[in-house]
C-alpha cells in the first residue's frame, strides 16, 4: 500500500494503481463481508450459549471482523497476501463449518435451531 499511497501524490493515478486499489476494495469489502458471515455462522455454532444468544453474540461481533478484514486489505503489502489472508481465513471458517455440520455437532453445541 505504501506504493499505492505514493501513486496518490502524482497528477493522474496510473492504471496499475487503480487496479491495486480496486482489488483491495473488493477483497476488503466483499471478501471481508463473506469472511465475517462465515465466522459469524461458525461462532453461532461454537459459542457455549443458547442458540439464540450464540447467534446474536456472533452477529454483534461480526462488524469488528469485517472492519479488521478491511484494514488488512488496505494495509498489507502485495495482492497475494491481501487475497491469501482473507480467502484463507474464509476457507478455514467454511471448512470448520462443514465439518461441524457433517458430524452433527451443532445440535449438541447449542447451535441447532
Amino acid at each position: 500500500m505504501a506504493q499505492a499511497a505514493r501513486g496518490a501524490r502524482g497528477r493522474a493515478p496510473s492504471p496499475r494503481y487503480r487496479l491495486d486499489v480496486a482489488s483491495r476494495a473488493v477483497a476488503g469489502i466483499g471478501g471481508g463481508y463473506a469472511l465475517s458471515v462465515l465466522v459469524t455462522l461458525l461462532l453461532a455454532r461454537l459459542l457455549p450459549l443458547g442458540a439464540a444468544d450464540a447467534g446474536l453474540a456472533a452477529t454483534m461481533g461480526s462488524f469488528t471482523i469485517h472492519a479488521i478484514a478491511i484494514i488488512w486489505a488496505f494495509s498489507v503489502r502485495g495482492q497475494a497476501r491481501v487475497w491469501g489472508g482473507i480467502a484463507g481465513a474464509a476457507a478455514l471458517a467454511g471448512l470448520l463449518l462443514i465439518v461441524i455440520h457433517e458430524i452433527g455437532g451443532g445440535a449438541q453445541m447449542g447451535g441447532g435451531l
Partner: peptide
C-alpha cells in the same frame, strides 16, 4: 512495517471518510 502501516491507514481514513 513501520511507517507503512500508519501511512496506509491515513490513506484508508481519508477515502473511507
Amino acid at each position: 512495517m513501520k511507517g507503512g502501516f500508519r501511512q496506509s491507514m491515513a490513506w484508508l481514513h481519508a477515502w473511507v471518510g
